[in-house]
């Protein structure tokens, strides 16, 4: 039997399960406790697990991410929630210079098994400073594993795997996905991994490669393309670092055309990296240069119509995919 569950509830279930399974696991971050979580993910967990394990922090991103790293080194299982990726910029130093590098710099003596969750992305009219998509920046850094659950199933299943990983894992939850709802089997939870990309919709004519909050848009675009006689294969990256080249290239070689959809800005983006890899590894299998749809290179505007114009949207994705076939497919 299945049940309907939202992305937010799936994350909460995963947190609850992790807290129940291991007394070393704890959650800390701004407003995770009394407030119930900025996106209500941790709502109710304070009552269930108490203030030691559901720990409200001051506005001190640099400090509490560092404390989380210390806790991880000391044998605890910290899950640190940084409210949004925008504010994680204040914690770049501990994430990049400490968590990601310590194993290497200690000659393999110290792994940092920390899990850091944060919301990412735009589309809610909260203006530029709250609308960034910096997960691609983190995907630049060796030593980090970067996850982008785009489905309820991944929201439910990725956390336990992240906690079991001996190295730092960053989980990016797109703010537009929290209300996403689907049917999930009660038991057992489907077996997942945190190393592979997934085909979310099989196709034969063009690989549509995306992650996170753009997945629903790309699936919608694939639906519309099908009506135009173009069979799009939708690839959900799931893991932004390390990238699963094998799944990507298998799709690209089959479809011979590739379109990358990424909500970050195009210059120096994850989309740029994906296109470079496609060019390096599948150049001779391509029937058209790889293409991409990214956000316009402007701080994400506040006004709804301007924000919509700045972000990847279904019609832009459809048009970019069609352009790979010339004007008439």
């Amino acid at each position: 039997m299945g049940r309907r569950i939202t992305y937010r509830e799936a994350l909460r279930e995963a947190l609850r399960e992790a807290l129940q399974a291991d007394p070393r696991v704890f959650l800390m971050g701004e407003d995770v406790g009394r407030y119930g979580g900025t996106y209500a993910v941790s709502k109710g967990l304070l009552d269930e697990f108490g203030p030691e394990r559901i720990r409200d922090t001051p506005l001190s991103e640099l400090g509490f991410v560092g404390a989380g790293i210390g806790a991880a080194l000391g044998g605890m299982g910290p899950i640190v929630e940084v409210m949004t990726v925008n504010f994680s910029l204040l914690a770049l130093d501990p994430i990049v210079n400490t968590a990601a590098m310590l194993r290497h710099m200690s000659g393999g003596q110290f792994s940092v098994p920390i899990v850091i969750r944060m919301a990412t992305g735009a589309g809610r009219q909260v203006a530029a400073q709250h609308s960034n998509s910096f997960e691609g920046w983190y995907a630049h850094v060796p030593g980090l594993r970067v996850l982008a659950p785009a489905t309820v199933e991944d929201a439910r299943g990725m956390l336990a795997l992240a906690l079991a990983d001996p190295d730092p894992v960053l989980i990016f939850e797109h703010a537009q996905l929290y209300n996403l709802e689907t049917e999930l089997p009660d038991d057992p939870i489907p077996a997942l991994d945190i190393c592979s990309a997934r085909v979310r919709r099989p196709g034969t004519d063009v690989s549509l490669i995306t992650h996170g909050g753009s997945l629903p848009k790309v699936l919608q675009a694939a639906q519309e393309l099908a009506g135009l006689g173009i069979s799009g294969e939708v690839i959900d990256l799931r893991v932004l670092r390390p990238l699963d080249d094998a799944t990507l290239m298998a799709s690209v070689r089959k479809c011979r055309r590739a379109l990358v959809v990424d909500e970050s800005w195009r210059s120096g983006s994850l989309a740029a990296e994906l296109m470079a890899r496609i060019t390096e590894q599948a150049f001779f299998d391509l029937d058209a240069p790889p293409a991409r749809v990214c956000s316009e290179e402007v701080p994400i505007p506040y006004a709804r119509h301007m924000e919509e114009a700045a972000l990847p949207q279904v019609p832009k994705i459809v048009a970019a995919a069609r352009a790979l076939f010339g004007s008439t497919p």
Partner: peptide, 11 residues
């Protein structure tokens, strides 16, 4: 209060 965080929980 800082959002939901009372002064005594942050200082």
């Amino acid at each position: 209060y800082a959002m939901g965080t009372a002064l005594a929980r942050s200082e």
